[in-house]
Amino acid sequence: MMIQGFYLSLAVSILYFIIAIFFMVHFFTGRRLFSISTNILLILNLLLHTYQLIATGMAEQRFPLVNLFEALSVLSLLTAVLYLLLRFLLKAKSLGVFVFPMVFTFHLISTVGVKIVYLAEELFRSPLFMFHTITTIIGYGCFAYSMVLGVMYLYLFRELKRKKLRLMFDRLPPLELLDKLNNAIQLLGFIFLSLGIAAGLLMAHIYWGTMPLLDPKIFLSLCLWVLYLFGILMRRISSWSGRRMSYLSVIGFAWMVFSFLVVRIIFITVHNF
């Protein structure tokens, strides 16, 4: 069963890799065939990915989001779904080339770690836990998008300022739209992260009787929350926008990757994933 799960996950990873390559070919060559086939392939892979998660949950009789690797898998699924929404609602086709290398990387890490399963404690079965993980993952997905939009903004801004109008000028949406989208998605991410952190702290209080705010992982997550709160406030109070907010998105994402992935390797934390 486990082996089957691994191969299924590997197949999803490979398909995300192919999709990322197709997006690149379409972005650089503008060939329509790649755009159409990529969308079909993406929809099929999203169905396969969803099936993979449901199959894992059903096989192990638990919510399929109880370790870091499953969290990454859900994060990649959410990011890919969000791409489709933006693709069809806002016609932001060019996002794909930036988003899918990230989706592939997240999913590949989750595939490599698919065999590592934590003991299904009572904690992992509680609705509060599901709420905590889902909201936090959605929040992280939004911040990943915010980083992508920020990078796109910075690229286009640089081309326009330097007057060297190349590929980004031809392919990317206007600066104003990128900034507005970034603002909306950052706000959405902040709301979900706030809910996730609140649920997590409440859960810690219920199950552990304490709120380990100084635990490295929890502390860094709170810092991330403060960073985005600072950005949102600065946008409203000091009219921060455009480049500054794009830099903040990139820094925020780097922080998120650090607190989400790297911190577990460096520090000892009570937060298992």
Binding site: G30, R32, L156, F169, D170, L175, E176
Partner: peptide, 25 residues
């Protein structure tokens, strides 16, 4: 549709407006 033969402004005035549309949506 299959080539970029009509892409990009072909006069100074269109180029100016095209630039404006890359800054403002």
């Amino acid at each position: 549709t299959e080539t970029a033969i009509n892409e990009g402004a072909s006069s100074v005035s269109y180029a100016a407006v095209e630039l404006a549309t890359r800054i403002f949506s």
